[in-house]
Amino acid sequence: MRKTNRQLLLEWAEQSSIDGRQLKDALNVGGVLPTVSDWRGFLDKLLLYVGALFVASGVVFFFAYNWDDLGRFAQFALVQGAIVAALVAFWMLGLEKLSGKISLMMAAIFVGVLLALIGQTYQTGADPYELFTVWCVLILPWALLARFDVLWVFWLLLLNLSISLYYQVFGGLFHVLLGGEQMLWILFVVNTVALLIWEWVVTKGADRRKVRWMTRLLATVSGGLASTLAILNLLGSDESSFSQYGVLAWLGWMALAYYWYRHVEVDVYVLSIGVLSVIAIVSVFLGRFLFSGADAFASLLIMSAVIIGLSAAGAYWLRSVVLGEQS
């Protein structure tokens, strides 16, 4: 990874390649030290964000205090008014501006508040998963329209919550399969499909550097779920459930991730996730055999050596990938 000017200058100073007396000037040349304008801009943003946060919190507390005294229609008018205000702001600011996208995101959040108010006022008896599912469906057109990655993350979060809450209520399909495991499978499929769609969209033209965090977030969730399924497969003994396919799913995910993030669009972060996953799965696999009868001291020693060896090998490989990209 390319080093920042700060890292380079401090490294050169440590090597005495820059005279200590010249370091401050060098830091100024490298744009590391904040100028007076930078300080001014920093103070401005700090006062603006903290001030706005306090005012917004105060408004929320005010409505919380008076909420019970407001009539039903006043409560609905307030929330719906907030949605309309956010949409008007979005319309005025436009889709291209960040502030416009944030306004649309605020409107999406207020939709959830409205749904909660409906559930509370009319006592519909709906389960929480129904609220989140309806919320997801209602704001999907806005998410498609905004093309705003933060809003997509929010939408995916709602979808994941809906699925998780559903399985809290219903233990599984016809109560035949284990609810928890089935939930993990569905979450894995949903988040992996999201990652695939995201990669397809990005290859169509978005600047990958700007949306890298979204790729990494999706890969982390998807990879984490694949690893969990593999571990359940290794530790489980029930051969009648989906658990026996956990390792296969993990191997498939790893193969695809290696191909895409090593040879097509190199992303060392995702490769690091893969390395950590390999270490975890191999450790669980080994542990299953070592701790079922062998001497505790020898088992622990072998596990330690394997983990340390794998992590060192993984770091060596990742570093070679980084160097290969830099050259």
């Binding site: 990874m1 080093k3 890292q7 490294e11 060392v268 972060y269 690091s272 996730i273 390395v275 950590l276 270490i279 450790s283 622990l300 020693l301 596990m303 330690s304 050596a305 983990i307 340390i308 794998l310 992590s311 993984g314 770091a315 990742l318 570093r319 980084v322």
Partner: peptide
């Protein structure tokens, strides 16, 4: 030797698990 922070984090996590077993 200044690996990215996520590589160092990965090393740190794995290293700690290895140390715990040791």
């Amino acid at each position: 030797d200044n690996s990215p922070w996520y590589v160092r984090t990965m090393l740190g996590i794995a290293g700690w698990f290895g140390a715990l077993f040791l």
